[in-house]
Amino acid sequence: MLDWLKNKKYPEFWNTYLQLQEEKSARYVTLSVQTTGLNPQKDVILTIGCVAVVNNELVIRDSFEIILLQYIYNHDNGFSNEFIIESKMPKSPQSEGLQKLVEYIGNATIIGHRVDFDLEIIYVGLEKMDCGKLRNEAFDLEIMFKKWKESSDDKKFTIEEIAQALKLPKNDTDSTIEEAYAMGLCFLKLKKYLRID
């Protein structure tokens, strides 16, 4: 709101994004973010994977994956960029990648796992591009799972543990897109059990 009062100039794609938020969407998007660490200010995003859920089904065509090329971070920390070269996934510099992500998500509801942190680190990136916070509604799988289990203690659950408790088959999720897929399956089940429309 404050931004608007100051009459701040947003990039074009962000305005389009904001316009989209005025309508509610029946589309959900799982969000899996791989970072270098847990400090939103100092650490950076390496890869992002998403897949859409529409009408209680995962839509394979409507998925999103990207590797962010963190030249500065790698340089500062003396990391090589070998694994980036190995991967077949599309690659972008951070700002371009985040723009694509924002365009992909649109007005969908975001499904994450410990989603607050992911949103925070994305926000740090967006801020540098003169954009604001993501406005989407966001659900957290861990919270949903605990609500379904009716457990109130502080026990933490990883995606693998949630998937196992939901009797989903074990899968290696060594990339964010695969984790997004596993999260999608968990969400389909929890959505049904918690009667979310």
């Binding site: 209680n56 089904e57 995962l58 394979i60 999608g184 399956l185 389909l188 089940k189 049904k192």
Partner: peptide
Amino acid sequence: ISLSVNVLTID
């Protein structure tokens, strides 16, 4: 073909 797949979970 795989691109056009939708995935369902059935209890």
